[in-house]
Protein backbone atom coordinates (compact mmCIF):
# COMPACT_ATOMS: atom_id res chain seq x y z
CA UNK A 1 0.00 0.00 0.00
CA UNK A 2 1.23 3.45 -0.90
CA UNK A 3 -0.18 6.60 0.64
CA UNK A 4 0.84 10.11 -0.32
CA UNK A 5 -0.50 13.05 1.66
CA UNK A 6 -0.28 16.67 0.64
CA UNK A 7 3.01 16.29 -1.21
CA UNK A 8 4.79 19.49 -2.22
CA UNK A 9 7.95 19.69 -4.28
CA UNK A 10 9.64 22.65 -5.88
CA UNK A 11 12.81 22.68 -7.96
CA UNK A 12 14.01 26.22 -7.48
CA UNK A 13 11.01 28.32 -8.44
CA UNK A 14 9.41 25.53 -10.41
CA UNK A 15 6.59 24.17 -8.20
CA UNK A 16 6.12 20.70 -9.63
CA UNK A 17 3.92 19.04 -7.02
CA UNK A 18 1.52 21.25 -5.07
CA UNK A 19 -0.33 19.28 -2.46
CA UNK A 20 -0.70 15.95 -4.18
CA UNK A 21 -2.53 13.20 -2.31
CA UNK A 22 -2.90 9.62 -3.43
CA UNK A 23 -3.70 6.24 -2.01
CA UNK A 24 -3.28 2.95 -3.80
CA UNK A 25 -3.96 -0.35 -2.09
CA UNK A 26 -3.92 -4.05 -2.74
CA UNK A 27 -2.89 -5.30 -6.14
CA UNK A 28 -3.58 -3.94 -9.56
CA UNK A 29 -2.12 -1.77 -12.25
CA UNK A 30 -2.32 1.98 -11.84
CA UNK A 31 -1.41 4.00 -14.90
CA UNK A 32 0.09 7.37 -13.92
CA UNK A 33 -0.64 9.75 -16.76
CA UNK A 34 -0.13 13.43 -17.41
CA UNK A 35 1.51 15.80 -19.87
CA UNK A 36 5.29 16.02 -20.15
CA UNK A 37 6.71 17.78 -17.14
CA UNK A 38 3.58 17.26 -15.03
CA UNK A 39 5.60 15.61 -12.30
CA UNK A 40 5.05 11.89 -12.85
CA UNK A 41 8.72 11.07 -12.44
CA UNK A 42 8.98 13.46 -9.50
CA UNK A 43 6.09 11.69 -7.76
CA UNK A 44 7.66 8.29 -8.35
CA UNK A 45 11.07 9.40 -7.20
CA UNK A 46 9.53 10.92 -4.07
CA UNK A 47 7.99 7.57 -3.23
CA UNK A 48 11.38 5.94 -3.73
CA UNK A 49 13.12 8.55 -1.62
CA UNK A 50 15.32 9.76 -4.47
CA UNK A 51 13.63 13.16 -4.47
CA UNK A 52 13.22 14.73 -1.04
CA UNK A 53 9.77 16.34 -0.65
CA UNK A 54 9.45 19.89 0.67
CA UNK A 55 6.31 19.02 2.55
CA UNK A 56 3.92 16.12 2.92
CA UNK A 57 3.97 12.55 4.07
CA UNK A 58 4.54 9.33 2.19
CA UNK A 59 3.80 5.93 3.67
CA UNK A 60 4.58 2.53 2.26
CA UNK A 61 2.76 -0.29 4.05
CA UNK A 62 1.76 2.14 6.74
CA UNK A 63 5.30 3.27 7.58
CA UNK A 64 6.57 6.80 6.81
CA UNK A 65 9.37 6.62 4.27
CA UNK A 66 11.21 9.84 5.09
CA UNK A 67 14.92 9.07 5.54
CA UNK A 68 14.19 5.36 5.69
CA UNK A 69 15.69 2.76 3.36
CA UNK A 70 14.47 -0.65 4.45
CA UNK A 71 11.06 -0.15 2.83
CA UNK A 72 12.72 -0.17 -0.58
CA UNK A 73 13.08 -3.94 -0.20
CA UNK A 74 9.40 -4.00 -1.12
CA UNK A 75 9.85 -1.87 -4.24
CA UNK A 76 11.30 -2.60 -7.65
CA UNK A 77 11.91 0.47 -9.74
CA UNK A 78 12.43 0.87 -13.44
CA UNK A 79 13.96 4.30 -14.09
CA UNK A 80 12.79 6.35 -17.05
CA UNK A 81 16.31 6.69 -18.37
CA UNK A 82 18.39 3.55 -18.29
CA UNK A 83 21.70 5.00 -17.12
CA UNK A 84 24.17 2.32 -16.15
CA UNK A 85 27.85 2.39 -15.27
CA UNK A 86 29.28 2.06 -18.79
CA UNK A 87 32.38 0.08 -17.88
CA UNK A 88 30.47 -2.92 -16.49
CA UNK A 89 29.25 -5.82 -18.56
CA UNK A 90 25.60 -6.84 -18.42
CA UNK A 91 26.28 -9.90 -16.26
CA UNK A 92 28.53 -7.93 -13.92
CA UNK A 93 25.76 -5.38 -13.47
CA UNK A 94 23.12 -8.02 -12.76
CA UNK A 95 25.40 -9.83 -10.30
CA UNK A 96 26.24 -6.58 -8.56
CA UNK A 97 22.62 -5.60 -8.06
CA UNK A 98 21.74 -9.07 -6.77
CA UNK A 99 24.66 -8.82 -4.36
CA UNK A 100 23.66 -5.35 -3.19
CA UNK A 101 19.96 -6.11 -2.80
CA UNK A 102 20.56 -9.28 -0.83
CA UNK A 103 17.25 -10.74 -1.96
CA UNK A 104 16.55 -13.89 -3.95
CA UNK A 105 16.65 -13.16 -7.68
CA UNK A 106 15.34 -15.02 -10.72
CA UNK A 107 18.24 -13.84 -12.84
CA UNK A 108 18.37 -16.61 -15.47
CA UNK A 109 14.63 -16.49 -16.04
CA UNK A 110 14.68 -12.78 -16.87
CA UNK A 111 17.83 -13.00 -18.97
CA UNK A 112 16.09 -15.61 -21.10
CA UNK A 113 12.80 -13.72 -21.14
CA UNK A 114 14.31 -10.61 -22.67
CA UNK A 115 16.82 -12.45 -24.83
CA UNK A 116 19.88 -11.00 -23.14
CA UNK A 117 22.19 -14.04 -23.43
CA UNK A 118 24.15 -12.68 -26.41
CA UNK A 119 24.86 -9.45 -24.53
CA UNK A 120 25.93 -10.80 -21.16
CA UNK A 121 29.61 -10.10 -21.69
CA UNK A 122 29.16 -6.82 -23.55
CA UNK A 123 29.91 -3.54 -21.85
CA UNK A 124 26.81 -1.52 -21.08
CA UNK A 125 28.21 1.52 -22.85
CA UNK A 126 28.22 -0.47 -26.11
CA UNK A 127 24.56 -1.49 -26.01
CA UNK A 128 21.81 0.08 -28.08
CA UNK A 129 19.08 2.01 -26.31
CA UNK A 130 16.54 -0.77 -26.75
CA UNK A 131 18.87 -3.45 -25.39
CA UNK A 132 19.71 -1.24 -22.46
CA UNK A 133 16.00 -0.93 -21.74
CA UNK A 134 15.74 -4.73 -21.75
CA UNK A 135 18.55 -4.88 -19.20
CA UNK A 136 16.62 -2.29 -17.23
CA UNK A 137 13.52 -4.50 -17.33
CA UNK A 138 15.45 -7.63 -16.37
CA UNK A 139 16.95 -5.76 -13.40
CA UNK A 140 13.51 -4.66 -12.26
CA UNK A 141 11.65 -7.94 -12.62
CA UNK A 142 14.49 -10.07 -11.34
CA UNK A 143 13.19 -9.47 -7.82
CA UNK A 144 9.90 -10.76 -6.59
CA UNK A 145 8.61 -7.53 -5.03
CA UNK A 146 5.09 -6.70 -3.89
CA UNK A 147 5.33 -3.31 -5.65
CA UNK A 148 6.67 -2.49 -9.10
CA UNK A 149 7.18 1.12 -10.11
CA UNK A 150 7.80 1.51 -13.84
CA UNK A 151 8.64 4.86 -15.39
CA UNK A 152 7.87 4.69 -19.10
CA UNK A 153 8.75 1.00 -19.45
CA UNK A 154 7.95 0.87 -23.17
CA UNK A 155 10.72 3.32 -24.11
CA UNK A 156 12.62 2.07 -27.14
CA UNK A 157 11.32 -1.50 -27.05
CA UNK A 158 10.77 -3.53 -30.20
CA UNK A 159 7.31 -5.18 -30.62
CA UNK A 160 8.47 -8.63 -29.51
CA UNK A 161 9.93 -7.26 -26.28
CA UNK A 162 6.86 -5.15 -25.73
CA UNK A 163 4.76 -8.32 -25.82
CA UNK A 164 7.13 -9.96 -23.35
CA UNK A 165 6.84 -6.98 -21.06
CA UNK A 166 3.04 -7.04 -21.13
CA UNK A 167 3.04 -10.77 -20.41
CA UNK A 168 5.35 -10.24 -17.49
CA UNK A 169 3.19 -7.45 -16.10
CA UNK A 170 0.06 -9.60 -16.43
CA UNK A 171 1.79 -12.49 -14.73
CA UNK A 172 2.79 -10.35 -11.77
CA UNK A 173 -0.66 -8.78 -11.71
CA UNK A 174 -2.18 -12.22 -11.38
CA UNK A 175 0.12 -12.78 -8.41
CA UNK A 176 -1.48 -9.79 -6.71
CA UNK A 177 1.32 -7.28 -7.23
CA UNK A 178 0.82 -3.53 -7.20
CA UNK A 179 1.99 -1.54 -10.20
CA UNK A 180 2.52 2.17 -10.72
CA UNK A 181 3.26 2.69 -14.39
CA UNK A 182 3.78 5.92 -16.27
CA UNK A 183 3.37 5.86 -20.01
CA UNK A 184 2.26 7.94 -22.97
CA UNK A 185 1.02 4.93 -24.91
CA UNK A 186 -2.73 4.78 -24.57
CA UNK A 187 -3.03 1.34 -26.06
CA UNK A 188 -0.81 0.09 -23.25
CA UNK A 189 -3.14 1.76 -20.74
CA UNK A 190 -6.24 0.26 -22.33
CA UNK A 191 -4.81 -3.21 -22.38
CA UNK A 192 -3.40 -3.28 -18.88
CA UNK A 193 -4.53 -0.59 -16.50
CA UNK A 194 -7.05 -1.22 -13.76
CA UNK A 195 -7.11 2.45 -12.88
CA UNK A 196 -5.89 5.73 -14.29
CA UNK A 197 -4.25 8.47 -12.23
CA UNK A 198 -4.03 11.74 -14.10
CA UNK A 199 -1.59 14.41 -12.93
CA UNK A 200 -2.05 18.04 -13.81
CA UNK A 201 -0.71 21.22 -12.28
CA UNK A 202 0.91 19.43 -9.40
CA UNK A 203 -2.14 17.53 -8.23
CA UNK A 204 -4.19 14.48 -9.08
CA UNK A 205 -6.75 15.70 -11.55
CA UNK A 206 -8.53 12.42 -12.00
CA UNK A 207 -8.33 8.98 -10.44
CA UNK A 208 -10.59 6.15 -11.44
CA UNK A 209 -11.23 3.28 -13.81
CA UNK A 210 -11.14 3.63 -17.57
CA UNK A 211 -14.90 3.17 -17.55
CA UNK A 212 -15.33 6.12 -15.19
CA UNK A 213 -13.00 8.15 -17.39
CA UNK A 214 -15.07 7.37 -20.47
CA UNK A 215 -18.29 8.24 -18.74
CA UNK A 216 -17.05 11.49 -17.37
CA UNK A 217 -15.66 12.74 -20.62
CA UNK A 218 -18.26 11.20 -22.89
CA UNK A 219 -15.41 9.99 -25.06
CA UNK A 220 -15.20 6.34 -25.92
CA UNK A 221 -11.66 6.43 -27.16
CA UNK A 222 -9.14 6.59 -24.28
CA UNK A 223 -6.78 8.88 -26.15
CA UNK A 224 -9.57 11.38 -26.68
CA UNK A 225 -10.85 10.93 -23.15
CA UNK A 226 -7.40 11.78 -21.77
CA UNK A 227 -7.14 14.76 -24.05
CA UNK A 228 -10.59 15.93 -23.01
CA UNK A 229 -10.13 15.45 -19.28
CA UNK A 230 -7.98 18.46 -18.60
CA UNK A 231 -10.64 20.77 -19.97
CA UNK A 232 -13.06 19.67 -17.27
CA UNK A 233 -13.43 20.32 -13.57
CA UNK A 234 -11.15 18.23 -11.35
CA UNK A 235 -12.45 15.51 -9.09
CA UNK A 236 -9.78 13.38 -7.57
Amino acid sequence: MIEVENLHKKFGKNAVLTGLSLKVEGGGIYAVLGPNGSGKTTLIKSILGMVVPDQGLIRVNGQPTHRKWKYREELSYLPQIANFPGNLSVSELLDMIVDLRRQPARQQELIAEFGLEPFLNKKLSNLSGGTRQKVNLALTFMFDSPVYILDEPTNGLDPASLIRLKERIRLEQSRGKLFLVTTHIMQFVEELADEVIYLLEGKIYFKGTLEALRQRTGQNDVEHAIAAISTQEPNA
Partner: peptide, 16 residues
Protein backbone atom coordinates in the same frame (compact mmCIF):
# COMPACT_ATOMS: atom_id res chain seq x y z
CA UNK B 1 31.52 9.83 -13.46
CA UNK B 2 29.76 7.50 -11.06
CA UNK B 3 26.49 9.38 -11.24
CA UNK B 4 24.85 6.39 -12.99
CA UNK B 5 26.07 4.01 -10.33
CA UNK B 6 24.76 6.37 -7.65
CA UNK B 7 21.32 6.61 -9.23
CA UNK B 8 21.13 2.87 -9.48
CA UNK B 9 22.03 2.50 -5.82
CA UNK B 10 19.58 5.13 -4.64
CA UNK B 11 16.61 2.99 -5.67
CA UNK B 12 17.92 -0.03 -3.76
CA UNK B 13 17.32 -0.79 -0.10
CA UNK B 14 20.56 0.86 0.94
CA UNK B 15 21.11 3.75 3.33
CA UNK B 16 21.92 6.98 1.55
Amino acid sequence: NSREFTELLLALPVRR
